[in-house]
């Protein structure tokens, strides 16, 4: 196995590890840190793939992702947290061990689904597909168990990381136009969310999601 493939696999494992860590993390600031870390791993893995497959466009992609996910978005989130006064808020997560256990089961499930697909793949780092799927499922799980708007968004962003990870490591990158579009959507989305948080807090005095589930039929 060539070196870059080993590196990619290592990064993939780290990626998954961070996803697990995010699932269990209670403090918002740490969550954002973890998110930035995940973004960094993502960018590195894109670089590794770009190096291994000699695709220059992937470097651009790595730069874009790195800029966005290691710097811009975490910065925005830090600012938000500070302005909303949430920096040291911690969330009540129920039964972290159980959660991790569920995550483990999901992991196994994801690998199981990915196995037949990975066998077919022509690309070298085919095993990362299972990891991408697992991290997507873990992020979804994280969104389900989180109770505040901000952490939910972090779950969402991490989900998006997983997707990009899948796109780059498994398929050696999507066409640039699409990547740009995706990036644009993500950044606009985060801006909108930022605007949103203020409105939500204005109206509900909290970002706790339990508060605003009362308008239902």
């Amino acid at each position: 196995m060539p070196l870059f493939a080993q590196i990619t696999n290592l990064l993939a494992a780290l990626f998954l590890l961070v996803a697990f860590a995010m699932l269990a993390q209670r403090r918002i600031v740490h969550l954002i840190n973890l998110y930035a870390l995940q973004g960094g791993i993502l960018a590195l893995s894109i670089v590794a793939v770009g190096y291994g497959t000699h695709q220059e466009s992937l470097y651009l992609s790595a730069a874009l992702n790195g800029l966005l996910k290691v710097i811009v978005i975490p910065l925005i989130l830090y600012r938000l947290v500070r302005r909303l006064g949430l920096a040291w808020n911690r969330e009540n997560l129920l039964r972290v061990p159980t959660l991790l256990l569920v995550g483990l089961v999901l992991n196994i499930f994801a690998f199981d689904v990915a196995l037949p697909i990975a066998h077919l793949a022509g690309t070298i780092n085919r095993d990362t597909f299972g990891i991408a799927l697992a991290s997507v499922l873990l992020s979804l799980l994280m969104m389900i168990v989180r109770t505040t708007a901000l952490t939910q968004v972090l779950g969402f962003l991490s989900l998006e990381n997983g997707l990009i990870f899948a796109a780059t490591s498994v398929t050696y990158g999507m066409p640039m136009m699409v990547e740009l579009g995706i990036a644009l959507d993500v950044i606009v989305g985060v801006f909108i969310l930022g605007v949103f948080f203020f409105h939500i807090r204005e109206e509900f005095d909290s970002l706790d999601l339990h508060r605003f589930d009362r308008h239902e039929e």
Binding site: V136, M143, A149, F156, E160, L163, F196, H199, I200, H215
Partner: peptide, 23 residues
Amino acid sequence: LEAAWKYFILCGVGIALALFGTI
């Protein structure tokens, strides 16, 4: 706001899954 939030999160997740499918 609540409706928009729900809309954003649920559709966002949905569409993220669609992206995975696309990939």
